[in-house]
Nucleic acid binder design. Structure first.
Lengths: 233, 233
DNA sequence: CAGCAGATACTTGTCTAACAATTTTGCGGC
DNA sequence: GCCGCAAAATTGTTAGACAAGTATCTGCTG
């Protein structure tokens, strides 16, 4: 607040940060599949780090829900079931709805959201799905960050890792028309710009519900065959 | 959710948990004062633990805002200024408002909230201020937990440490009539029981705003003399 | 042949010790 | 009195070790 906010983000400075980012990416992209075990020893050997470093990293990933772990048991990449997805989207809606209401109240349309929107459209044109998912997350994060509340942003960050994870699982068999998503995003921004809190909240809630329903529909279909957990490596 | 909720909480099982709880209490109660430095070496010597253990503990406290720390610099107990308190209460309101709206929608009045309410009244009668603050936190936490959303509860937990901290700072010079607080709590529960979402949200928002205003008023008065940071030890 | 008990291997929790990198502090010179 | 450099303090990371708890496999018994 008092110092100028950083305009450029550099590569992570500490070992743990770098490790965290790398593992985060691998989990989110599905490179480390849901259900797969991630032992401390594995991290130590895959990268060249000491075990305490790996341990700290796994703890951080656990804190944001990208790994599940109970005492003395190996951390695993979670497979979210329907109940968890509903819970996740309820929490997400709570934060983002408040954010857009606030933005509408201030009449503030974040530039970063518009930028993210353009990135989404470019990714759609390129058929680059991973990038599209990432830009979509960036769009929603931009909305929350624009409120300017450190703590709201932190709470949002706490759950967006899991959102990213579910979209990553979903990404393989995508059935969504990207133009629908784009239209919904624009409707949110338009309501914010018009200063209409209720409309902004409605558009956002509808958008999230649509995403949630797509995930749930996909999941209930997939859970039927009860496919065995994929184990590679 | 699927397993029965624990009816009794035991002492923390792991070393780090115990350390975390102890330090948390000491920070919240003001035993470790705002502005005070907490080095890893200090924790190591005060308790009998290894430095990595202390380090992990400080990291966890930092994650929930009970300590502030930047790379290579010593962790300190934060002194929240007015801007931060406003931010904190904005975030808190976002979560708790959603929670009571949801409870009203379900018509679910959590028993734990009523129990906490009784604990508050008992603490008031005993003039036990620390206990009163703790029970007040428990009341609000009970509201959020009753929703049954793991993630909403986790987000709430992420900021309630800081709330506890500010109330601890405030506790020394208290100016609040406890009966006002009790009445506000009961109004919230009544609205929830009646299933009136809007009224529940209104009562909660008013309650939080009153608490926030008391804190801010106290703080702006205190900041005038610009007292030098207390340094003991 | 099935089921259970014990033994073994694996994994995590914590500790000790050490060195590198960075920040803070204190001293001396100008 | 102020600035810069060196020493001290503190954190970041690594290595190795041992205890304790889990999971797995083997072998015995019915």
């Amino acid at each position: 607040m008092s110092t100028s906010p950083p305009r450029f983000t550099l590569a992570p400075s500490s070992m743990i940060d770098a490790l965290y980012e790398s593992l985060r990416q691998r989990i989110i992209n599905g490179e480390i599949a849901p259900g797969e075990k991630v032992t401390e020893a594995r991290v130590v050997s895959e990268y060249t780090v000491a075990r305490p470093t790996a341990k700290a990293c796994l703890e951080r990933l656990t804190a944001v829900g990208l790994l599940h772990r109970t005492a003395h048991r190996t951390a695993v990449v979670p497979e979210l079931d329907v109940a968890e997805i509903l819970d996740l989207f309820f929490a997400r809606d709570s934060i983002e709805r408040r954010a857009v209401q606030r933005l509408a109240e201030l009449g503030r349309v974040p530039a970063a959201a518009r930028a993210a929107q353009e990135r989404i459209e470019r990714a759609v044109a390129d058929k680059d799905f991973a990038h599209q998912v990432e830009a979509d997350i960036a769009f929603h994060t931009a909305l929350v960050d624009a409120v300017g509340s450190k703590r709201l942003s932190r709470m949002h960050e706490l759950i967006m890792g899991e959102v990213h994870l579910t979209m990553g699982q979903f990404q393989a068999h995508r059935t969504t028309d990207p133009r629908t998503v784009a239209a919904e995003h624009l409707a949110i921004l338009a309501a914010v710009e018009a200063g209409d809190q209720a409309a902004a909240a409605e558009h956002l809630a509808g958008h999230l519900r649509a995403a949630q329903d797509r995930l749930v529909a996909r999941l209930t279909r997939d859970e039927q065959p009860h496919e065995p957990p994929r184990v590679d490596a």
